[in-house]
Design a protein around this nucleic acid. Structure first.
Length: 428
RNA sequence: GUGGGUGUAGUUCAGUUGGUAGAGCCCCUGAUUGUGGUUCAGGUGGUCGCCGGUUCAAGCCCGGUCACCCACCCCA
């Protein structure tokens, strides 16, 4: 029987030219994080199933997880996300100077049917601040998010950071007349709004509101609100602490010059553990359907591991969805896509010269010059083709020791002849 | 889990109302050339996803199956 040449469905496999792009994306994310004083951490790939059962959401654990029973009869799971592990790490520290600002780029797993932007094994960049209940923490993570987009040269016209608040929405729906038992249904209806035609959506919403059109109309008004300074909204939310928080956060964003953030009551976010401000980053063009990034405030996650009450705020960002987004808008630099594998290629004209080519390669590499030595043993014209294929523009032909070196520039055809030192000077 | 689409050369794809398989790119060889690229000539390469059915005859029609893609669900 012959083995399949394909990896398991949805599993990650990257050829060098693909991996180069992914690596560029992850490294750019890390740079922005380090720039803002965040530190990198790591945590287990395999976790007890119970870690996610409590707060991540039934769908994620029940139907979309890679879980199994290990040899010790433990129910375990390949992590679908990393925030609960982070919360545990924080809870386990006896003395930790708070707040902490941490980031990570873990591989995560979800048993879903693969499609554009969705695979089963993916890198999800995470950035969190734990131990600060101050709204400045929300502001800070959104600042970093915007800085990330800027570092990829994404103009603010092609993406939008929509934000809202779970606490505020729960209260607002109640004030709109939504019965507590209808609230989850109304929430999910709100979440679907962008995907349905306006009138079909209204009919759907009306159903979730128990057929009460007054209630449905108010919910429609609520999700149509574009700013917390809306007169209608202020009247509705008079005396609400959650709404005051929304107003304050709006002020903070405006006065900090975050032009891409937009108050959007329709933003809900799927994970169950979010409690306060939530936000997501989407492509305004529609080429990339899904949110690139989602995050928010979670008050009760660290508390699961004992009596410490530590609040956190952060976001997860899909490296694959982000990469698709960058490719859609031509934002992957050519230098990344077509990087040369070396600075110079050493062509070997005869087997007699392999050892002198090797000595030359070592001398150049010692100087920090990237050198690719021919190992094909093919004819000289093929060796030049090889160099071209790797994007290398300089080719040195190895000859007898003691002779002068001849180096040809493939771009302009010029030939340079000189001693080893002169060659090094030329290449550095 | 639900719905739609596609499976033909290494790759991207064409293939007419059923009549024994084609192109570009890649690759290989030779020529040309400033040892590369450029240009020219030639060449390798396919159980048409798999199994069955209809037919004198199936890449094409029918049934099944598998794989992949896209959308929904959910989410990064």
């Amino acid at each position: 029987m012959t083995l399949s040449t394909k990896p398991l469905s949805g599993m990650r496999q990257r050829l060098p030219h693909e991996f180069r792009v992914e690596k560029y994306v992850v490294e750019t994310l890390s740079l922005s994080s380090l720039n803002a004083g965040f530190e990198e951490y790591d945590c287990p790939l395999i976790e007890p199933l119970s870690l996610f059962a409590a707060k991540s959401g039934g769908e994620l654990v029940g139907r979309q997880s890679y879980n199994f029973v290990d040899r010790g009869k433990r129910e375990v799971i390949l992590r679908p996300e990393v925030t609960p592990s982070l919360a545990r790490m924080i809870a386990a520290q006896g003395e930790l100077q708070l707040p902490v600002r941490w980031f990570s780029s873990p591989l995560c797993y979800r048993y879903e049917r693969p499609q554009r932007g969705r695979v089963r094994e993916f890198v999800q960049f995470n950035l969190d601040i734990l131990g600060s209940e101050n709204l400045a923490a929300e502001l800070e993570v959104i600042l970093v998010l915007q800085d990330i987009m800027k570092s990829f040269n994404a103009p603010s016209s092609i993406y939008r950071i929509g934000w809202s608040s779970r606490r505020f929405m729960a209260e607002a729906l109640s004030r709109c007349g939504v019965e507590p038992e209808s609230a989850p249904g109304v929430f999910s209806a709100i979440d679907k709004r962008d995907k349905m035609k306006e009138d079909a959506w209204y009919t759907f919403l009306l159903g979730e509101c128990g057929g009460d059109s007054d209630v449905a109309d108010r919910v429609l008004s609520l999700v149509s609100v574009k700013s917390p300074s809306s007169k209608w909204l202020i009247d509705l939310m008079a005396g609400s602490a959650a709404f005051e928080e929304v107003e304050r956060f709006n002020e903070l964003l405006l006065s900090s010059g975050i032009e891409s953030a937009e108050f959007s009551p329709g933003v809900v976010r799927g994970l169950d553990y979010y409690t306060g401000i939530v936000f997501e980053l989407v492509d305004t063009g529609g080429e990339n359907n899904r949110s690139l990034c989602g995050g928010g405030r979670y008050d009760n996650l660290v508390g699961l591991f004992g009596n410490k009450k530590i609040s956190g705020v952060g976001f997860g960002l899909g490296v694959l969805t982000l990469t698709l987004f960058l490719e859609t808008y031509g934002l992957i630099p050519v230098s990344v896509k077509e990087a040369s594998a070396a600075d110079v290629y050493i062509a070997v004209s005869s087997p007699d010269f392999v050892s002198s080519a090797a000595r030359l390669a070592l001398s150049l590499r010692k100087e920090g010059i990237r050198v690719m030595m021919d190992v094909s043993g093919k004819k000289m014209n093929k060796q030049f083709s090889e160099a071209t294929r790797y994007g290398i523009t300089s080719v040195v032909t190895a000859g007898a020791d003691g002779a002068m070196y001849k180096m040809k520039n493939i771009d302009d055809g010029s030939v340079f002849t000189g001693t080893l030192d002169e060659l090094i000077g030329r290449l550095k």
